[in-house]
Design a protein around this nucleic acid. Structure first.
Lengths: 246, 246
DNA sequence: CGAATACTTGAGTGGGGTCAACGCAAGTGG
DNA sequence: CCACTTGCGTTGACCCCACTCAAGTATTCG
């Protein structure tokens, strides 16, 4: 099906942004079987303690991984954009230690573990790239941890905006320092260990200082250089093959 | 060399704590070439931005990974105990995005990337287990992130003590709720996003309430059940094959 | 156009930070 | 074997960043 082929092409494009793919490898990826499902905000794709038999390729919309503490506090662990496979880890960790949800109506392609395993057997190069993908995932966790532990609220928020723009840019989903940002201020707070109230005040400050424009779900970075300075942003940790902003 | 064989046996034991190994796989691991080096506290094994050609197997002592922000603030990302390969990721991420140091005089076995790659080619099962190891690494990052972002200082510290004891126990380095804890209160603070002053006060409180005994570098957990309660500790995220405390 | 959800603003508060001083133990070297 | 140093642990006083609570104002969507 033409639509399915182009759908899974997103995954190839994502992987190509972090490593180089041979034609054979790209074809192997594009031959993966895919069952498409739509998820609505509030719905979980996978839940804490599940034992999934598929991985989820995000085709459109945004996903996020999160944990909920006994007292109801939520920590968002990562945001995911089209092309990402947020639960690739489930290939080797049977039990989910967190949940996976969506922030907007999203289209998700389910890929059976068995198909992925078969591909890694036949194409060890793809296995290495997928391993690399999960390692970059971990590198982003490390950077977030550093932010939450040691950065000010201003630094954390600025840093997150820089990261998201760069990741969107790397897969062709942002250009000219503009992008969609389909997440609420509550989400941002839960991702950065802040209250929504404080997120709001900091965003207003960043707007007031002319660093960003943010209305509704649309972000424009008006002064990239100043924003990266506030964020102390260094993109090394994203391990992109071509880490350019424009 | 007999000593080298038993040294690298630590790695096999560690991997056996998170997955089952066949005899052939265990032998392949034990055949890995190893150059042993001693590191002193304050010395770095690998530095941010390095491009290592070896991985480091920790043989004795404790290691830790960390980032330093421009203003000098330090965030410790993980602690590592004998049997761990803290920079396994460097096999697929050329540039280090953080540093690796030791808290005590430590003995480290350097394994050439090429030897590891050769092993993954010949033993895809070992490759899968090492991949799994890096995934558990990431799972621990997620749990720490959640702690730093959403737990109180008491919860964070209690949680860390539970985790470290369980990991030591899993590789046979702790028994009877007692273990060495060769890290300073400054280290704990830098790991959990707290000041050393506050770490000190919380530790005193935990001692005063009879949950732990901590003198010098030796920890005894006097009330495991109460400590896990304060920590809201659930070991699922460690993905141990046999997650028992005793 | 009502209902829900997100965003905004203000006032008051507290957990944990900072600063500074001191105790104590383990080197270390003369 | 003692004087000096160094690093870690401990304590007190003060304070601020970010939280909580609460109420009001857009948006969005059926």
């Amino acid at each position: 099906m033409a639509s399915a082929a182009s759908d899974i092409g997103r995954m190839a494009r994502k992987l190509a942004s972090i490593a180089s793919l041979t034609d054979a490898e790209r074809q192997a990826i594009e031959a993966l079987p895919l069952t498409v499902r739509i998820f609505e905000p509030g719905e979980d794709i996978v839940r804490d303690r599940d034992r999934p038999s598929h991985c989820c390729l995000l085709l459109s919309g945004w996903g996020f991984r999160y944990k909920v503490l006994p007292d109801g506090k939520r920590q968002i662990l990562s945001f995911h954009i089209p092309g990402d496979v947020p639960d690739l880890q489930s290939l080797h960790l049977q039990v989910m230690d967190h949940s996976l949800g969506v922030t907007t109506t999203s289209s998700v392609g389910l890929i059976p573990h068995e198909a992925l395993r078969e591909m890694t057997r036949r194409f060890p190069g793809v296995a290495a790239i997928m391993w690399r993908d999960t390692l970059i995932d971990a590198a982003i966790f490390r950077e977030w941890m550093t932010g939450i532990g040691r950065r000010t609220a201003h630094g954390r928020i600025a840093h997150m905006l820089c990261e998201l723009y760069l990741r969107l840019h790397a897969v062709g989903l942002a250009e000219g320092f503009r992008c969609d940002l389909p997440i609420t201020q509550i989400d941002i707070g839960d991702a950065l260990g802040l209250s929504n109230v404080h997120v709001n005040r900091v965003l207003q400050d960043l707007r007031g200082r002319g660093l960003i424009m943010l209305r509704g779900r649309s972000l424009a970075i008006e002064d990239w250089s100043a924003l990266t300075k506030v964020a102390e942003f260094d993109p090394t940790y994203l391990h992109l093959v071509r880490p350019r902003v424009n």
